[in-house]
Design a protein around this nucleic acid. Structure first.
Length: 212
DNA sequence: ACTCGGATTTTCT
DNA sequence: GAAAATCCGAGTG
């Protein structure tokens, strides 16, 4: 019997260059935190320094992206648009900076808790989008840098209990990124209702005169 | 059903 | 100082 703290999944040993394959393989896995479990239905891959201009780590380590350069299996949470948190699983070897963004999933346990955190929302929209997923899990900045493997942090990432054969897996361009529209590194379960709607990156409106 | 704009703060140039 | 891996509500067809 394996010691929980010593479990190493194969993708944790994979190099950063394999992050698209890792992302695809994580579909159907379960993320649990604070009484809510979500089955992943949509993810995106981000590669490390230099190769992927859409990655936060593209220009090398900074205080924010430091955790991405650490060992695979930790959580990388970032704050976006001054409003939302999004959750990534760090991938690649130490010193590399790949990550998989958890974009959407189906709440399979703790639905009541998730509804309490998300407010009046359709069940299937509870985790339909990266920021929504984080709200349902009830995590925030305190989870950044913690392991998602060994149970020492609030988040636990676990393989599917049974083989979750579905219709299939599709891929396409990543959502909302300001560059690299041509890289099909978004993966989702075909036809799953909890997959978020694709939106092309919308250019920001030039700043209007500020009232007051 | 779809499009548009605002919120709000961290990060890096 | 500007941009950012988003979400929600309002307005229109």
């Amino acid at each position: 019997m394996a010691f929980a703290g010593l479990v190493i999944y194969p993708w944790q040993r994979a190099p950063a260059a394999d992050v698209p394959d890792t992302a695809r393989s994580l579909l159907g896995w379960r993320v649990t935190a604070n009484g809510v479990t979500i089955r992943l239905t949509e993810v995106e891959a981000y590669a490390g320094t230099g190769e992927d201009p859409a990655s936060h780590a593209h220009r090398g380590p900074t205080p924010r992206t430091e955790v991405m350069f650490g060992p695979a299996g930790r959580a990388y949470l970032y704050f976006v648009f001054g409003v939302h948190w999004c959750l990534n699983v760090v991938c690649g070897r130490e010193g590399e900076a790949a990550a998989v963004l958890l974009r959407a999933g189906e709440v399979v346990d703790g639905v009541d808790l998730a509804v309490g955190r998300r407010g009046n929302t359709a069940i299937r929209d509870l985790a339909r989008g990266p920021a929504r997923l984080v709200v349902s899990l009830g995590v925030g900045r305190e989870a950044n840098g913690t392991s998602m493997i060994d149970g020492t942090g609030p988040l636990v990432l676990a393989p599917p209990l049974e083989s979750v054969l579905v219709n299939g897996i599709e891929s396409g361009p990543r959502v909302g990124v300001a560059s690299a529209h041509d890289v099909p590194w978004r993966f989702w379960l075909t036809g799953d209702p909890t997959v978020s709607a694709y939106r092309r990156h919308a250019p920001r409106k030039p700043k209007a005169a500020r009232p007051k």
